[in-house]
């Protein structure tokens, strides 16, 4: 009789085959700056979450009265700017690659939803500045949201509610979607170029794809 531990392990192994979670060999076409921007958006997200945690310790008005608080707040803001800029460049690249090919539709969709969810998270951040800017943004946003019925449970004029959406619900949703996106990338592999000549069908089931892989760094150094 198998335990739930075995069942979970089997399920995880099926989701991402062993060795594919952190592979050190990838197809040659993965050598592209477009993927660097994907990783940069992830790195930015780590800084966003880290600085957000520090801001949570200091409090929502900390940055008005403390030089350190102002620095952490600015780091939070600019890492968000970088997060969006790098994510959009990654998105543009994947769009023109038609990256949803080969049963990778869910990978594309989770990326797109992560982008949209991040916009919502950023907007609630702007509403949590506790200054006239956030007050003005809330005043401008309320009519549009109320006209479509969202205001009943998402009141932009309530700073406390917006802050909780910003620091709990939305980061949780974005975090889960981003993790799902990365798992899907590892599960299905990176999409081959459109004009690639493949040995077999690209069904998204072979993580490294049917194209010969480029040698890893250690192979280049050992083989000279």
């Amino acid at each position: 009789m198998s335990s739930w531990t075995v069942g979970l392990r089997t399920r995880l192994a099926r989701t991402v085959p062993p060795g594919e979670l952190l592979p050190d060999r990838q197809p040659a076409y993965v050598s592209s700056w477009i993927y660097v921007f994907g990783v940069l958006s992830l790195a930015s997200l780590v800084v966003v979450i880290g600085t957000g945690c520090v801001l949570a310790i200091g409090g929502v008005t900390w940055w008005h009265t403390s030089g350190l608080g102002h620095f952490v707040n600015s780091t939070h803001l600019w890492s968000v700017e970088l997060f969006f800029a790098t994510m959009v460049i990654h998105l543009w690249g994947k769009f023109f690659m038609a990256a949803w090919r080969g049963k990778r539709a869910l990978t594309w969709m989770t990326g797109a939803v992560a982008f949209v969810g991040s916009i919502g998270t950023a907007f609630t951040g702007y509403l949590s500045q506790t200054n006239f800017d956030s007050q003005w943004i809330a005043g401008e946003a309320k009519d549009g949201l109320n006209s479509v019925g969202i205001g009943a449970f998402f009141n932009v004029l309530d700073p406390g509610q917006m802050l909780l959406w910003h620091v709990t619900l939305l980061p949780l949703v974005v975090g889960v979607i981003v993790v799902a996106h990365i798992v899907l990338v590892r599960r299905h592999g990176v999409v081959p170029p459109i004009d690639a000549v493949l040995d077999g069908p690209d069904d998204g089931a072979t993580p490294t794809g049917p194209i010969p892989v480029a040698p890893a760094a250690r192979d280049l150094t050992t083989t000279g």
Binding site: R25, Q26, A28, V30, S31, S32, W33, I34, V36, F37, I89, G93, A214, P215, A216, A217, L220
Partner: peptide
């Protein structure tokens, strides 16, 4: 455009 056009010379580029 630079990300698309500039060659990537990473360890895995071959």
């Amino acid at each position: 455009l630079l990300a698309v056009l500039v060659p990537f010379h990473g360890p895995g580029s071959g």
